[in-house]
């Protein structure tokens, strides 16, 4: 253990040969990646490239079939999500996943769960320390709401917030777990120019004021180029490039991946293969209308949203 920590000193997160295979499809394929503490790192790539899947590996929703992901020298493989949250990784979701039937403040308070101690006993008998802690949780939650600028919505239902505010609430909830690494999955999706600019500002403050490392999936290249200090590019689950923003912008493989003529067909085929492999659609049927209606080629969130949505459904069904 100590040897491992020593070897990876300096890197907050290190992925070695990380792979996950769904049936015949390697959604994330032999990815090597290092994130230094205190940096802002972006993960980009066309839809269906495996970016969200990589987040799912990192946060414990999936377990890598091959390779390893270390966080502060400890392997996240097979660890429960709440344990990884406790270690200090937190995240937001591409398709916003707030606790819709709870208030804005309560959402953030849930994020405090992992950093507080009182258990069932304290709650049942309302011990003084329990009450003190409940009060502390609320104060902390209010502080995070102020940090992201949502304090005036504190008592609204989360589902009643405007879209951009919901994204910021997800960030506040993630921050409430006091992470060392925050993973933001397309935080700017669906935001207008000014909201997007506010978001840039917020992400910088997270790193600068809170000293939290930021790992970012984003399609909005303006956001990526403004913020990211280092960029990884995924395509078909494989890492095709990495480097400083300027290098990535001029990397032919990246341009090819984003602008390739066969991109549309390739992505469609790939998505089908992914879904079929996981048994979520029957082979050789027409794609679902809502998926077919949208254009999957460009940098909107369609392809991955599709995957993520199906993914939710599956989880719910399984429960």
């Amino acid at each position: 253990m100590n040897k491992v920590v020593a070897e990876h000193q300096g890197y907050l997160m290190q992925a070695t040969n990380a792979t996950i295979q769904f049936g015949g499809l390697r959604a994330v394929d032999s990815v090597n990646m290092n994130i230094e503490a205190g940096t802002i790192v972006a993960l980009i790539g066309p839809n269906g490239a495996g970016k969200t899947t990589f987040f799912n590996l990192l946060t414990g929703i999936y377990t890598p079939t091959e390779g390893e992901i270390l966080f502060e020298g400890r392997s996240v493989s097979g660890k429960k999500t709440h344990v990884i949250a406790d270690w200090g990784i937190s995240r937001t979701f591409q398709n916003i996943r707030l606790f819709k039937e709870m208030t804005v403040l309560e959402n953030v308070m849930v994020g405090r769960h992992v950093r507080t101690k009182s258990g069932f006993f304290g709650a049942t008998f309302r011990t003084p320390s329990f009450r003190r802690e409940e009060k502390q949780i609320q104060e902390d939650a209010e502080r995070w709401l102020e940090f992201v600028g949502l304090i005036e919505y504190a008592n609204d239902l989360a589902s009643n917030l405007p879209y951009g505010a919901q994204r910021r609430l997800e960030i506040a909830r993630a921050l409430a777990t006091e992470p060392k690494l925050i993973c933001l999955d397309e935080p700017a999706a669906g935001m207008n120019e000014s909201e997007s600019a506010d978001l840039d500002d917020l992400i910088l403050r997270i790193r600068d004021e809170l000293n939290i490392t930021v790992f970012l999936i984003e399609h909005d290249m303006k956001v990526v180029m403004n913020l990211a200090e280092y960029i990884y590019v995924l395509d078909f689950g494989k890492l095709i490039a990495e480097g400083l923003p300027a290098e990535i912008q001029s990397n032919p493989a990246v341009i090819e991946a984003y602008l390739g003529q066969d991109m549309e067909a390739a992505i469609k085929a790939k998505r089908r293969a992914l879904l079929e492999a996981r048994g979520e659609i029957a082979p050789e049927t027409t794609p679902k209308p809502e998926a077919a209606a949208k254009d999957p080629v460009m940098m909107d969130s369609d392809g991955v949203v599709m995957v993520a949505t199906e993914d939710n459904k599956e989880k719910n069904d399984a429960a």
Binding site: T59, G60, I61, K80, T81, H82, I84, A85, D86, S90, R91, F93, R97, L98, F99, K100, E101, M102, E106, M109, V110, G111, R112, H113, V114, R115, T116, S118, G119, F120, A123, E133, E134, I137, R173, A174, A176, T177, N312, K315, A319
Partner: peptide, 20 residues
Amino acid sequence: KLGKAMRATSQDKDAAGLMG
């Protein structure tokens, strides 16, 4: 806190797990 954890879990198990 535990009550909220229960509600959060009932609304979205994955998200609740990721919140610790």
